[in-house]
Every structure is written in C-alpha cells, then in structure tokens.
Simulated scan of single mutants.
Amino acid sequence: MHIVNICICTYMREQMLSDCLQSLVAVNVPDEVTVTVSVIDNDASGSSEGCVSRAAEALPFTVRYMQEAKRGIPCARNRAIEESIQHGADFIVFIDDDEIVTADWLVNLYNYNVQKGGRAVVHGKVSQRLPDNLPPSIQGLYKGGKRFSGEALSACATDNVLIPIHLVTELELRFDESNPLAGGTDTIFFTQATSKGVEIFQCNEALVYETIPKQRATLKWLAKRKYRAGITDAWRKSQRG
C-alpha cells in the first residue's frame, strides 16, 4: 500500500477551506492507496482548527491539523513536507485551500504517475471559477497558456500537484524561506527539481476548480501578482544564463 498525503496550506479562509475539505469526501481513491490529509494553518492563532475538526468527522481519511507560526507559504509547505516524511508518506499532494476537487481527480493524478514509472511529478489542471458579472477586460487576464496532457514541464505550481517522496528525501529539496512573503517559491522549487533530473508532466484529467473571490478579480491585485511572477521568471532565466 502506498500512502498519499494530501496537504492543504491555509491562512484565515475558513469558508473556502471548509468547501475544499468537503469536496474530498466524495473523492475516489486509487487501488492499493491509503490517503491521509494534512492541513497546515499558517495563522498562529489557529483560526482554522474548528473548521478542520468539523470536516474530519465526515472525511473517510485520517486528518491531521497543525499550526505553522512562521508566516509565509514556503514555511507552511516545508512543514507539510516534514509531516509527510514523519508519517511515512510515499507521495505528497498539494492543493490550495480555495479549490474544489473532482471525483476522479486523485485517481487520475496518481495513475498517471504510475504510468510514468512512479518517480515523476504530475501537475493537474486548475479551472478557474470567476465572480459573476466580471468585465471582459478582467476575464481576459485570467486566460493563461493552455497545457496538454503529457506535456513535459520545466516547472509548475503547488496548486494541484503530486510529488514523489524522493524529491524531499533523496534530493533534499525544500521551499526557499529566505523571502517567505514574496511568492514564486513553488516555481523555484520545481525548477530546481528539473535541474536535478526530475521529470514533470501535465495531466488535465486530474481536475480541480479554483474559486476566485471578487477582491482578487481587480486590476490592482492582478498587477501585483503579475509583477511577482515576473520576478520569478527573471530568476529562472538568470539560472539558465
């Protein structure tokens, strides 16, 4: 039996987290796989603990809740890695707290990894659900490049990804905590992985839906996000000379 630990990092988004956890109730589990769920709360006050406790009553998996007081998403992700190693996971799966999984999401994500030999990273598809009555000018900014299933990637995000445990044990990869609030540390993590020979493949059949709140569907918020993405892209280009 392989152990797959689904990790969700969260910070003060209880309703979205509750919806995310609720969607896991109906998820199909691959053959010969044991699923566990780890929720890493990046709020030192533990604001999501009650939400996780309620969700755990309905989930058919072992659910672990933990706080990571050091602020920043790379700190929470590294805590998820350490928890996964401690509990003997063979694979780490990251999804975001604002996402809803589909029934066959995990089966498709895991089985594609098996097809690729068991040591490749597999990135699933994220389909965005935008607020109603959003102006077309804003809607267009959410249309990113389309990836096809089987496409080899030079990097990816942690928004829907399966990671074999060897990346963090044999290769000792971790998320960079030197600038924890800057963003882009997941792209850097996977760029470093591919530089060490790790393969990353896209699997569109492993589908999740991301809920975009109104406060993020603005030019101001998107401009900041694109600026951070540009910094990360510049770093990647400098690494390639």
Rank of each mutant, 00 (worst) to 15 (best):
Y112F: 14
S137L: 08
E170P: 01
E57L: 14
V25R: 11
Q115A: 09
A26E: 13
I40W: 00
F175W: 06
A182H: 12
N204C: 15
I231M: 07
A56Q: 07
T158S: 15
F94V: 01
R225C: 02
Y11M: 04
G117E: 03
Y110E: 02
E68H: 08
K220M: 06
A89W: 08
R174K: 07
K146R: 12
L134F: 00
A89R: 03
P213M: 02
T232S: 15
E14P: 03
L162T: 01
N42S: 13
R240S: 14
R225L: 14
P131D: 09
R228Y: 04
I73A: 08
I81K: 04
A217T: 02
E172R: 12
V29F: 07
K70T: 12
E68Y: 04
F91I: 05
L219W: 13
Q15W: 08
Q22W: 09
E172M: 11
F189R: 00
V27Q: 04
N111G: 00
V101N: 00
Q215A: 10
Q139F: 06
Q202L: 03
M1E: 10
N204P: 08
N78T: 03
D176M: 07
L24I: 00
A56C: 09
E82G: 01
V25C: 08
A182Y: 14
K143A: 10
R216T: 10
L167H: 08
E57S: 12
V27R: 05
Q86S: 15
D104Y: 06
P135C: 03
L207G: 01
K143Q: 14
S178N: 11
Q22G: 11
A58G: 11
C7W: 02
S149R: 03
F61N: 05
C51T: 15
V93E: 03
K196G: 03
D186A: 01
I188R: 12
I231E: 09
K214P: 07
Q15P: 00
D43Q: 02
Q139K: 13
G144Y: 11
V93L: 07
L171D: 08
V63Q: 01
Q15K: 10
A234V: 13
T62Q: 08
K116W: 09
L109E: 07
H123C: 12
F190V: 09
L134I: 03
N108Q: 14
A58Y: 10
S178Y: 04
N78H: 09
S45G: 05
I95S: 06
A26L: 10
P213E: 03
P30Y: 05
W221D: 09
R77N: 07
K146E: 15
V63M: 05
M12Q: 14
Y11D: 04
A55S: 15
D186Q: 00
Y112D: 09
N28E: 13
Y209T: 10
E83L: 07
A69C: 11
K116H: 12
A80V: 01
A155I: 10
T10Y: 06
Y227M: 13
A234F: 13
E68F: 06
F94K: 05
R119K: 11
L171S: 02
F94D: 00
G144R: 15
S53C: 06
S154D: 12
V101H: 01
A157T: 15
P213A: 08
G46D: 03
T36Q: 13
R119V: 09
G197I: 05
